[in-house]
Each structure stands twice: as structure tokens, then as C-alpha cells.
Lab assay of single mutants.
Amino acid sequence: MQRVNMIMAESPGLITICLLGYLLSAECTVFLDHENANKILNRPKRYNSGKLEEFVQGNLERECMEEKCSFEEAREVFENTERTTEFWKQYVDGDQCESNPCLNGGSCKDDINSYECWCPFGFEGKNCELDVTCNIKNGRCEQFCKNSADNKVVCSCTEGYRLAENQKSCEPAVPFPCGRVSVSQTSKLTRAETVFPDVDYVNSTEAETILDNITQSTQSFNDFTRVVGGEDAKPGQFPWQVVLNGKVDAFCGGSIVNEKWIVTAAHCVETGVKITVVAGEHNIEETEHTEQKRNVIRIIPHHNYNAAINKYNHDIALLELDEPLVLNSYVTPICIADKEYTNIFLKFGSGYVSGWGRVFHKGRSALVLQYLRVPLVDRATCLRSTKFTIYNNMFCAGFHEGGRDSCQGDSGGPHVTEVEGTSFLTGIISWGEECAMKGKYGIYTKVSRYVNWIKEKTKLT
């Protein structure tokens, strides 16, 4: 034993070699072989497995989906700052455009905790909710729209109204504003409101030439003092309507412009014939205590009207009353817009006519005020429907199939267009061939041609 100890002390290297040989010859039971080890760690190889990531292109799944990435790591994937920024906006807080917040056709661009709407022409605001041009839906104005110097929408209202708090709607500024039905039992019968379409306001006024200088022999019209197929109006439903009495009662109609003036057809009036105007009328054979009678003290036909040349060209006249009318729910003026808007309103496509005229061709006159909704007829169809001249200051309205029309005794009465609950004068009943005849239409004086003249002559002093 002493000898062994001496050998170990003198030859430590020998001992180490012996131990190493023993270990190498022993069977290893701690580690699995290569094949079995792979069965336990069965993990798919990654895209760049075996390579240094710093030297390969980034992978979106590896960089940002398996674990949260930084902007720089995302930049490695896209290799483009702009594309990385677009991805980053949604990656950080989701897609803010998912709810489609942009209105009126706006395009949404996502941002971090926010979004941006790219608005089409005519709109602005956070969600493109603000109209900035009158060309689109009248700028959301209830009545009139004008573009300011910086191309912003400025709404306005006709006389007797003021802008509401929203700067879009119009509200009454006087007790009985024009064009409004205020009798409670008839307010439910107000005709369907007309909503502004998209309009090209630059070209809204037709490029028409008034044929002022045409000389033409007097034409022989049949029954051209021209509501057939209409309905009984309720008291106060058309408070701007008046009836004219002269040699015979209810020979023509008219509309209240203001307390002192009536507008009617020029062919209705004769110099030297006494005319009485009755406002607030409903049943011409009954006294309903809503009527107001006034005498006409002055007749002003349009300066281009000449019955000797043509009885229905420039067929418009103004009547001055001896005493002002007292405005109330049964006696209310009709609204008159400017030339541009009167023309736009007419193009809405349908209007209402009213009167006490004959209820059928050569038949009896109506006792109760009649009204009828009539569609506008395109000019080409209008011209083809008659052998008589249709001037540019006239328009056609009615039904091709016949059966409904204005008729004798309705002449001078109103053709009105309702705009968001307020009625505007767009025409004056003038003439036609018979009444409600198939293929024939009622012919009306186009008020847009005469609004400046009306307003100039009827100013209240």
C-alpha cells in the first residue's frame, strides 16, 4: 500500500490518463441519441435557420407576430419608411378606419389613436360632414345658397324668414311668412316636400332668348283662358290664391305678392273693366268669414305684352289694390325667389296649380277651390304637342294621358313649387288646347323671366 501511494504521488498524470480511459469505455446513459432527441424537440425550422439574422431580410411573422416588435424591426421587413409607417399605425392600436367614419364618399386613412378623412370636392370637416359648395344638395341650405369668396357655403332665406341657429334652416321672422300653410287642420295635408338634388348652379339658368321682337298675326285659340281631375282644397291650404270678379264672377285667378299687390295673367284683364279681388276665398257660393274683398285701382301688364300681336306672350300683369290686405292664416303671400332659384325650383319637376275653373272641358265651374299636382314636361315634348308657338318664356306641365289639367277660369292662378315646406311661385296658368285632352298640356308663363320686374313694381313704400 505504501508503494502504491508513492507511485500516485510521483505520477499524477498517469492516474488522470487511467481515469479518462475508464470513462470513455463506459456506456453513456444520461444523453439520448440524435434521433430520439429530435422526437422530443420537434420544432419547425425557421426561415433563416442556421444563418445569422443580421444578414437576412426581415420576416413579418418572425419579427412582429411571434413577439412584439419595434418600429426598427418592422422597418427591416418593409425596407421602406412609408410602408412601415402605414403598417405601424394599425399594428400599434388597430384600424381606426374600420367603422368607416368618413361621410359623403370620403376616404379614410388610419393613424395612431386617430384617423384622417380625405374629402371629395365640396366637403370638409373631420368626417367630411361639412358642405362647402352650393353645387351639392344646395349646400344643405333649406332655401338659398351662395358661395363666399373663400368658396364656403353661405345660406340665406327669402323675405319674412331668418336663418336658424344651425345656419342652414329657415324659420319665420314674421307672423305670416310667405308660402307657408298655417291653418292647423290643413298642415297635415301639406304636399310632399321637395329635397334639393345635386345641381350645376353655374349652368342652372337656361341660355334662352326671349323672342321679344317676333311679330306674329293673332292666333285663334280655343278655350285658351284655361282644375280638371283635381281635388277639393281645404280652407287655408292655398292662402296665396285669390279669385278675380268682373263682368262675371271667378273669371280668373291670381296670387298675393304682398298686402297691396296681386300677380295674374295679362290676358285676364281689360282696361276700363272694374275688377274686384277676393282673398281668403274657399267656396265661392258661401260666406265663410275668411274672405277679404278689395278693388283694383291700377293694372300693370308687362311692358312687352301686346294682345294685338299675341294674347299669351309675356302673359303676366300686376294688380294694385285700393287697401292693403290683412295677412292671416287664410290670406298669405306666395314666396318669389330670384331668377336663378325660381328656375331651379321649376326644374324640380312638379308643381301645384289651383283655381275655381271648370271641372271638365266646357263644363261647370268649381264651387270649392280645386288643386292638382302636375309634372313638368320637357321642352321637346311640349313643342311636338301643339302647332302653336311655345315661346321661351312659357313652359308645359300636365299629363300625356289627359284627364287632369287646369281649365277655363283658372287662368292667372299660381303654379307653385314647394321647397322644404315653403311654396314659391314658378308659373302662372296661361293657356292650353281644350282641357285635359290626351297628348295636350297646360301652358304656363315662366315666372323666372319676370321676377325682377315683379319685385321692382310691387315694392311697398
Rank of each mutant, 00 (worst) to 15 (best):
V296R: 01
V4C: 12
A317N: 00
I262S: 00
Q241K: 05
D232P: 15
Y115C: 00
E208S: 15
E116C: 02
E159A: 10
L325D: 00
Y444V: 05
W261P: 00
G230Y: 11
T264G: 02
E124A: 04
S187A: 12
V419R: 05
N343F: 03
I334A: 03
C335G: 01
Q216D: 12
K247M: 10
D200Y: 05
E53D: 11
R358D: 10
Y91M: 13
N306W: 03
F395W: 01
G272R: 12
W88K: 11
N127Q: 09
V419Q: 05
E281D: 13
V416K: 01
T85M: 08
I210F: 09
W88G: 15
Y341T: 13
E159T: 09
G94N: 10
W118G: 01
K68L: 09
S99Q: 15
T386Y: 12
L318F: 00
R83N: 15
S204Y: 12
C407Q: 04
L369I: 06
V377D: 01
K247F: 08
N147Q: 13
D212W: 09
N283P: 04
H361M: 11
A279E: 00
K51W: 04
K446I: 00
G236A: 07
W88L: 15
C128E: 01
S365N: 14
N245H: 14
D212F: 11
L325K: 01
K126Q: 11
V30C: 05
G413E: 02
S182E: 06
V359A: 15
C28K: 03
M437E: 11
N5D: 07
S448K: 02
T186G: 11
K45M: 12
T215G: 09
D93N: 11
T190A: 13
H34Q: 09
A366G: 11
A26N: 03
P101H: 03
C97M: 00
Y330N: 04
H302I: 02
E10T: 08
G246P: 05
I300S: 03
N138Q: 05
P12F: 15
N393D: 10
L41N: 13
P172V: 06
N166W: 01
G160P: 01
K152F: 09
G351T: 02
D33R: 09
K45D: 11
V202K: 13
K311W: 04
E27F: 03
C134N: 03
H415M: 03
Y371G: 14
D200G: 13
K109Y: 04
A26S: 10
I454K: 01
T186M: 14
G439P: 07
Q185W: 11
T264H: 01
A192N: 15
N100K: 09
E35D: 13
L32K: 11
Y201V: 14
